[in-house]
Nucleic acid binder design. Structure first.
Lengths: 149, 149
DNA sequence: GTCAATAGTCAACGAAGTTGCCTATATTGT
DNA sequence: ACAATATAGGCAACTTCGTTGACTATTGAC
């Protein structure tokens, strides 16, 4: 019966591993951003996090940030300008190669990274409480196995 | 030292639960769409899946699909037109309420749902092989615990 | 010193979704 | 019976996040 196919499909769509992963990801990410906002960083958007994540000590090229984030230089360039306008990073021409632009954290940027780490730790602790410490480690290991396809 | 904060932050960004979940979700979803495309359904895009997922036997309102998918009626209305143009669903005015539009699977739509279930089963089997059957069940349970925040 | 490669940016576009407003139909209260 | 209200759907404009293509400036190789 077609109806049976449809019912089975609907049921599948609800319990699917892909959907569970997507929901869990969205949920964790939303909670992370909510806590960052509560900590005084309401102006940072999720898409801007990769800018911070790609920074390295001593200053980092926009191209390098783009590659780390897996996106085009153009997109990263725009993100960098946004985050700079928010006051978290500063840019300056690379003295050793005037084609390049070096991106560095400002003091506010350092404070943001500290807060982000604290928030992430808090969230991790919450999950450890809910899943058990061993359960959380096991979850991480299984996710890595899922990714390593 | 600021550099230490940055290094710790970078490390965190790589091993973060949120990032693991996002990567796993993207990976599983991409693989699902890849297999659907390989099975002859190259024209269905990820954003259109919720149209199918919300359908119920006997025909379903666009508003109902929108609510199930958690999006606006306007967005779902557009998705419905796209998927209809691809030939997977048909629409007709609701005879019992002429404001409404009932959405139903076509034969091609039923075939798609069958294939999607087969693909999903295959994928689930693959993961069961990689994580162990009990490991997969445990992963699902933990993801549900993560979602139930 | 010319010539190819690289870093960054501008402009146009695309996918996926939102909000505000509009029409058509239904329902409800008096 | 009819005015008021609610609901279903659709149009238009906009936002977010990303892409590709074409361009300039600088650099390095020969």
């Amino acid at each position: 019966m077609d109806d049976d196919v449809l019912r089975a499909f609907t049921e599948l769509a609800r319990t699917d591993l892909g959907r569970l992963l997507a929901e869990a990801s969205a949920s964790v990410n939303a909670e992370l951003m909510r806590r960052l906002a509560a900590g005084g960083y309401e102006d940072v958007r999720p898409s801007q996090i990769p800018v911070f994540a790609g920074l390295t000590p001593g200053g980092t090229r926009i191209s390098s940030l783009a590659q780390t984030a897996g996106m085009s230089r153009q997109a990263m360039s725009m993100l960098v300008r946004e985050v700079e306008r928010l006051g978290y990073i500063s840019t300056s021409p690379d003295p050793s190669d005037h084609r390049g632009t070096l991106v560095r954290l400002t003091e506010r940027g350092v404070a943001f990274c500290r807060e982000a780490m604290a928030v992430s730790s808090g969230l991790t602790d919450d999950f450890a409480g809910r899943l058990g410490g061993a359960g959380l480690d096991e979850l991480r290991a299984q996710l890595r196995r899922v990714i390593g396809a």
